Simulated scan of single mutants.
Amino acid sequence: MIIHIFKPLLFMLPLLWLGCSDTRSKSAMKPMQAEVGVYTLSEQSVTLTRELPGRTKATLSSEIRPQVGGIIQARLFDEGAFVKKDTVLYQIDPSSYQAAFDEAKAALKNAEATLESTRLKSERYADLAKIDGVSQQDREDAQAAYLQAVATAEGKKASLQSARINLEYTKIKAPISGRIGTSSDTVGALVTAGQTTALATIRVLDPIYVDLTQSSTQLLKLRALLAQKGVTHGSAALSLKLEDGTVYQHSGTLQFQEIAVDESTGSVTLRATFPNPEGILLPGMYVRAVLDEAVDADAVLVPQQGVQRDPKGNATALIVTAENKVEKRVLTTDRVIDDTWLVNSGLNAGDRVIVEGSNKARVGDSVKAVDVTTTLGKAK
């Protein structure tokens, strides 16, 4: 009785086993798709910057040298202090120059007295000549003496002016307003006119220049970049990094670019101006300036984890096509922008770049793409 009940079940067991086996074989024949994380590219406006080395330089610099020789009687400034234009800095012993001035002054008075005497005589002889009171020769001699006295007086005036200038030069004054450095000479030192060694140097430090150097190669790349569609000039504003790595609190302005390339270095000089009210920047300091070179309105940025290098060193990326197939692209990259690459060619907006799981995907494979969000940086 029991055998008759289970007999149909025993007959169905082989059929069930065959059905399960067939299902498993079909599953084994269908390969499983790898899951990869993709980032969808889009165009965006990016400010492209360049970091250039440079050195600070005073906007005005004046070396103080004596214009007359003599002994320094006094130094009338504090080293390192701010001095105003026309402030007396040194006093040279004026004794000999005062005497020369007094002598020239007396000589001029003597010449003026002679001039007056010859003028009166010339006028008197001119009147007498009209009535034949004096000969024509005497009249001409009187006139010539007067003209000679005029010339002598003019020469004495010039000598007096020269003596006055030399006397004034004994007071060595500041030609510009600025901060004065150390003095190379002390009281009692003998100085000479036009000496090669400056007594001191005055510099204007606010504002201050920063002379930057840019290679001619970088300049050519920038011009090629600006020729591209959607790329425009950047602003003239700059930021500054000091030698210790800190960022200078004031921004500067680009003034001009040198029109010639230095043959010894192959670089071009750019000059920027920075405010320096606190006096932090001193002439000769090494700094690095961050310059806004251009603005790319149609930039394509790719996360760095989505870019690899092939054995030849070329930049490559794996993308997922509309058919969910893996495809390899060779890229031309421009620069690193934080955690991204700026790509010039090889990728376009809308492409899905594999940024996670690339080791599980091979070119031509069908994959399951999962969107990954990432934050793109700013231009360096």
Score class of each variant (00 low, 15 high):
Gly284Val: 03
Ile280Ala: 11
Ala236Met: 06
Arg309Trp: 09
Glu243Leu: 08
Phe274Met: 15
Asn276Gly: 11
Ala289Phe: 02
Val290Ala: 04
Asp298Ala: 12
Asn276Gln: 04
Ala289Met: 02
Val295Ile: 13
Phe256Val: 06
Pro311His: 08
Gly279Ile: 02
Asp298Asn: 13
Val287Ala: 06
Ala299Glu: 02
Lys312Ala: 14
Pro277Cys: 13
Gly266Leu: 08
Glu243Ser: 15
Met285Glu: 06
Ser235Tyr: 01
Ser264Met: 10
Val247Glu: 13
Asp298Gly: 04
Val290Ile: 09
Glu263Trp: 09
Asn276Thr: 13
Gln257Gly: 14
Tyr286Ser: 14
Thr253Cys: 05
Val287Gly: 04
Val295Trp: 01
Thr273Gln: 14
Tyr248Trp: 05
Gly252Thr: 10
Glu293Ile: 13
Leu254Ala: 08
Gln304Ser: 00
Ala299Pro: 00
Leu238His: 01
Ala299Gly: 07
Glu258Pro: 05
Asn276His: 08
Ser239Arg: 06
Ser264Tyr: 04
Gly284Leu: 01
Ala299Tyr: 01
Ser251Cys: 02
Asp296Ser: 12
Glu258Tyr: 08
Leu254Ser: 10
Pro277Lys: 04
Gly306Asp: 02
Arg271Trp: 01
Gln249Met: 07
Val302Cys: 03
Arg309Asn: 01
Leu291Ser: 05
Tyr286His: 11
Asn276Phe: 12
Lys241Tyr: 10
Pro283His: 05
Glu278Cys: 09
Pro275Trp: 09
Gln255Trp: 12
Met285Cys: 04
Gly306Asn: 06
Gln308Gly: 09
Lys241Gly: 00
Val300Pro: 02
Phe274Gln: 11
Leu291Asp: 11
Val261Ile: 15
Thr273Ser: 11
Gln255His: 06
Leu282Val: 11
Leu238Thr: 06
Val261Phe: 03
Glu258Asp: 15
Thr269Pro: 04
Ala294Trp: 03
Val247Ser: 12
Leu282Gly: 04
Val302His: 05
Asp298Ser: 10
Phe256Asn: 13
Ser264Leu: 08
Ser251Ala: 15
Ile280Leu: 15
Glu263Arg: 15
Gln308Asn: 07
Val268Phe: 03
Ser251Val: 12
Arg288Glu: 07
Val295Tyr: 09
Asp244Trp: 02
Val261Asp: 09
Val302Met: 01
Gly252Pro: 03
Gln257Met: 15
Val307Gln: 05
Glu293Arg: 07
Ser251His: 11
Pro275Thr: 11
Gly245Gln: 00
Asp262Val: 04
Thr265Phe: 02
Thr265Met: 06
Leu270Asp: 14
Thr246Glu: 10
Thr273Gly: 07
Pro275Ser: 09
Met285Leu: 05
Val295Phe: 02
Gln249Asp: 11
Pro277Glu: 06
Asp296Ala: 10
Arg271Tyr: 04
Glu258Thr: 13
Pro303Arg: 00
Arg271His: 03
Ser264Ile: 13
Asp298Trp: 01
Arg271Met: 07
Tyr248Ile: 08
Leu301Thr: 08
Ile280Val: 14
Thr253Leu: 07
Val302Pro: 04
Ser264Trp: 00
Asp262Phe: 10
Ser235Leu: 05
Asp292Tyr: 02
Asp292Trp: 05
Val261Met: 08
